[in-house]
Amino acid sequence: MSNPCLTATGLHKTYKMGKADIEVLRGVSLHAEPGEYLVITGASGSGKSTLLSILGALDTPDKGTVTFQGRNVFQMPSAARNAYRNGLVGFVFQFYHLFPELNVLENVLMPRMVMYGAVKWWSVRRQAKRDGAELLERVGLDHRAKHRPKELSGGERQRVAVARALINRPALLLADEPTGNLDESIGAGILSLLARLNDDGQTIVMVTHDPKVAAYAHRSLVLKEGVIHESSEPGSERPVPAPVGTEVVR
């Protein structure tokens, strides 16, 4: 446990629903090492998305801390927290959440545009486009760069979302049920993509309700009744990654 990339300690989150309080997280603690592929499984409604949102600073915990590379995420000034969301973590959602008006390449470049002002962008735009093209190639969508999201299949959209999450080379990739909305075979393509990214050194924290998915990870945890339970370390059983873009060939 040397120098973890991400540490969460004692996270609590309660939602108020009318009179009843729903205690979703009741003291969640976890850590992710650099280069690790961590999967958190849990039943639907167990609070996985809530947890991941807090890790990605999209939401705040009622109690507890998230430390990223030694800095407490929720004590950062808001500009630094924006920079954290923008450059240090990448987020992949279950429902892709692409910009419908933008084409694939523009979607991928969006976090880079957010990073720079208009003047600075002018000088970095060539490099950004190269990076975007390269990422699209890595996720097997270089031939779709000019297409709108609605012209793509679900699996392709999720690949675009992965590329977008990676454009600013984040230290940590957070994935919230990236295959939850996809057929199993297509989901497998995404999972193998993530596995290959991890092989290249990308730290990944993924949540899923599907225990089978946990097979891809180095380590898996179970979220149940608001707390984390350790699970076995299935790293050796990881299946061989399928070739990129299998679901395109359907």
Partner: peptide
């Protein structure tokens, strides 16, 4: 939703 995405990828409220 798109505003949410923008925020999630690091855009500030002021931005």
């Amino acid at each position: 939703r798109e505003i949410g995405i923008l925020k999630a990828i690091g855009a500030s409220g002021r931005g």
